[in-house]
């Protein structure tokens, strides 16, 4: 078990390193000049060279990468002289646009994205698994068909369309909710939930539809297993058969997708956050794109990869808890 964990952590580090390298390459090799972006529109050649040296762009690529990597673990000083900026551990770079280290920016926005992701996840799990399991148990009935047609339709709606329609219907026409703005959970729990309700719904609808389709399939498969027949032959009440024997194995495959989805969303739902104007990582990312703030783009990418890889590891470890046949 310990050995397995160590191996996995090592692999995790390897994957992150590879992703960092690829990301780094893309940003520093593709035909854009971060220096020109940082320098601004009216920029003399001398000044550009200065900025270049300041950003370390005159050094060979591998050296820049090495600096970037060591910076993550030890922190580093960017630039020299009077413009020098101290970027502490863990240094993912420095956003000149915001005059803040990327790490601080990310940590500042993370609660918003995490609130959005976790809230939506709860909602979509309830909706999606509920619909999927109901449909599976009533396979081939009208209920099943209605739920599945609804799920396919909902999965086909682009999230920006749903979001805009929700804003239009709930906020503009019905006036039920204020236009979302982020409230901190600890300071104002009700305001937090109320303001996030629409973004949660918009995001959850899409995922719920996908989960309904997935969970229906795996639940049908699970309920066709011979051990379900055994449970019935033992005279277990149908409820117990479904809940204790069917659900546990039927929901296991869902775990894998859930890990990936939640991991991916933690680092920001770009479209949803932009439409609802939530100051999360996704919007930070989008803003950084518009202003060519490459350290931030790089930082968000790495953070997102980190979440996905960690989520995968957690899922794999959970499998061993759920399924006794999996042993490390």
């Amino acid at each position: 078990m310990i050995l397995y964990l160590l191996r996995r952590l090592l692999a995790l580090a390897g994957v992150l390193l590879a992703i960092a390298a690829v990301t780094f390459l893309i940003f520093y090799v593709l035909p854009t000049d971060p220096a020109a972006a940082a320098c601004g529109k009216t920029c003399s050649p001398e000044r550009l060279a200065d900025v270049r040296a300041y950003l370390g762009l005159d050094k060979p690529l591998w050296e820049q990468f090495a600096h970037f990597l060591t910076g993550i673990f030890t922190g580093r000083t960017l630039g020299t002289g009077q413009y020098a900026v101290q970027c502490d551990f863990p240094c993912l770079g420095y956003s000149y646009e915001n005059s803040l280290p990327v790490w601080d920016l990310l940590m500042d926005r993370l609660p918003v994205s995490a609130s959005l992701a976790f809230g939506a996840a709860v909602l979509w799990l309830i909706l999606g698994l509920g619909a999927g399991v109901t449909a599976a148990l009533r396979k081939d009935t009208a209920t099943d068909k209605a739920l599945m047609v609804g799920a396919v339709a909902a999965a086909s709606l682009p999230v920006y369309f749903t979001s805009v329609m929700l804003i239009y219907g709930v906020i503009r026409i019905a006036g039920l909710l204020p236009y979302p703005s982020y409230h901190e959970l600890t300071a104002d729990p009700l305001g937090w939930a109320g303001n996030l309700l629409l973004p949660w719904t918009a995001l959850a609808l899409l995922y719920a539809a996908m989960y309904a389709r997935q969970s229906r399939g795996s639940m049908i498969e699970a309920m066709a297993e011979p051990y379900i027949r055994t449970a019935r032959a033992k005279g277990m009440p149908e409820r117990t058969v479904v809940v204790k024997h069917g659900l546990r194995s039927g929901m296991t495959p869902i775990l894998t997708i859930f890990g990936m989805d939640l991991g991916g969303l933690l680092a920001g739902a770009v479209i949803t956050e932009s439409i609802f104007g939530l100051p999360g990582i996704g919007r930070l990312f989008y803003g950084a794109l518009v202003s060519s703030d490459q350290p931030v783009v790089l930082g968000v990418t790495l953070l997102a990869a980190f979440f996905i890889v960690v989520a995968n590891l957690v899922v794999d470890l959970l499998y061993a808890v759920i399924d006794p046949r999996v042993r490390y």
Partner: peptide, 24 residues
Amino acid sequence: AKVRGRKMAMIFQDPLSSLHPYYT
């Protein structure tokens, strides 16, 4: 369900798939 398993019981061909893999 009250009769099943109580007054009559059944065993199946493939005991591996007929037992739930997740419970002892």
